[in-house]
Computed example of a mutant assay.
Amino acid sequence: MYYTYMLRCSDGSLYTGYTNRLEYRISQHQAGKGAKYTKGRRPVQLVYVEEYETKGEAMKRENQIKQLSKSEKEALVLSKKTQTI
């Protein structure tokens, strides 16, 4: 499985990414090794996740979410698919 996810950073911003190892990827973000963007905005919290069969689907959705406005991303977070790990 592949996952498209959003993290809430310590400054309130949202980071969007995709992975096939969700728990590991979140731990990398928490350790400051996940992405340049999240490195200085730790701790992060998983606030949204979607599951996909293929890498291509997850990447496509990541790109779609990244094109949304902040308010549209916030609406997604509030709407569904929130998961805690």
Rank of each mutant, 00 (worst) to 15 (best):
M1W: 12
M1V: 15
Y2S: 09
Y2M: 09
Y3S: 00
Y3C: 02
T4W: 05
M6Q: 01
M6D: 00
R8G: 07
C9Q: 02
C9G: 05
S10H: 14
G12D: 14
G12N: 13
Y15K: 15
T16S: 09
T16D: 05
Y18C: 07
Y18D: 01
R21H: 12
I26E: 01
Q28V: 07
G32P: 11
G32E: 09
G32I: 10
K33R: 08
G34S: 03
G34M: 02
A35Q: 03
K36T: 12
Y37A: 11
K39F: 11
G40V: 06
R41D: 09
R41N: 07
R42L: 14
R42F: 09
R42A: 12
P43I: 10
V44R: 04
V47T: 04
Y48W: 13
V49S: 14
V49L: 07
E50M: 09
Y52M: 06
E53R: 15
E57P: 01
A58E: 00
M59V: 14
M59N: 05
M59Y: 08
K60T: 14
R61P: 01
R61T: 05
N63L: 14
N63V: 15
Q64L: 09
Q64A: 09
I65N: 02
I65R: 01
I65W: 01
Q67T: 06
Q67F: 06
L68R: 02
S69V: 04
K70D: 15
S71W: 14
S71Q: 12
E72R: 03
E72P: 10
E72Q: 15
E72A: 15
K73H: 05
E74F: 14
A75C: 02
L76Y: 15
L76H: 08
V77Q: 02
K80Q: 13
K80W: 12
K81Q: 10
K81C: 09
T82F: 13
T82I: 12
T82K: 10
Q83M: 13
T84C: 11
T84M: 12
I85K: 14
